[in-house]
Design a protein around this nucleic acid. Structure first.
Lengths: 116, 116
DNA sequence: TATATTTACTACGACAAACGTAGTACGACA
DNA sequence: TGTCGTACTACGTTTGTCGTAGTAAATATA
């Protein structure tokens, strides 16, 4: 089955992560598992990609981190929560996505195949 | 109005260019103008992006170049035509696009606003 | 009690598409 | 003679993603 290349998903990892944080704070390992689940294995985020997205988005003020004193499972966790700026950013990115879909669809000429 | 960022379009410039070459051979400047037109100014490809995409895709065997001896307008042109491999690649990328839309849409929670 | 596995990261460097800036070169037109 | 439009080319930078590897704690297994 076709998979999604990184150049194609590029720029959407932020949306994907922020979407899951809209539900409430979470941490890397959990986010990663939820992405895999929601995307039905069609997309699996790489660990390094995920954690570097956290760093970048925290620097940009879209998310905030805090550490959990209780340890359930392995190592100590770093939780992230979405900020108001992050919600704004998410919304803007969603709108950009709608526009992107419109534009790229103009350059698609293939008849959409049924599931064979 | 919102514009499409480069990280978001990344990986689709190839599709966009190949789509226009499906009509017949063309060259940089013309392709660039046709993209702008078809995208209704919502996306304008940068010159450097376009020409580096040509180089990359020719190296990959998706397009072939030939020069026009006749000069209409300014400098001599380099024309590109899509190859069979290019058509295959275009088709595969279109299918990936359908999948990408499906996946990313799962992470979009915004109600699609009407044009206000 | 020792080791493996799962959880949960962190560090570091590499890659490649897209970009910014600048320059070249030709024709037409005023 | 100089500007405008056409049609590229060169070169270095940026940035998100990726590959590989390592760390560290808790729990399961032997």
């Amino acid at each position: 089955m076709a998979e999604i290349s990184s150049d194609v998903i590029r720029g959407y990892n932020d949306i994907i992560i922020l979407y899951l944080l809209l539900d409430g704070p979470s941490y890397g390992y959990e986010i990663s598992k939820r992405i895999r689940l929601l995307a039905e294995e069609k997309y699996v985020i790489k660990e390094t990609t995920l954690y570097s997205a956290f760093t970048r988005m925290e620097k940009n003020g879209y998310i905030e981190s805090f550490t959990d004193e209780v340890m359930s499972g392995g190592k100590k966790r770093t939780y992230y929560r979405i900020t108001d700026a992050g919600k704004e950013y998410y919304k803007a990115k969603c709108e950009e996505w709608q526009l992107t879909k419109e534009v790229i669809d103009k350059f698609i000429s293939i008849v959409q195949g049924e599931n064979t």
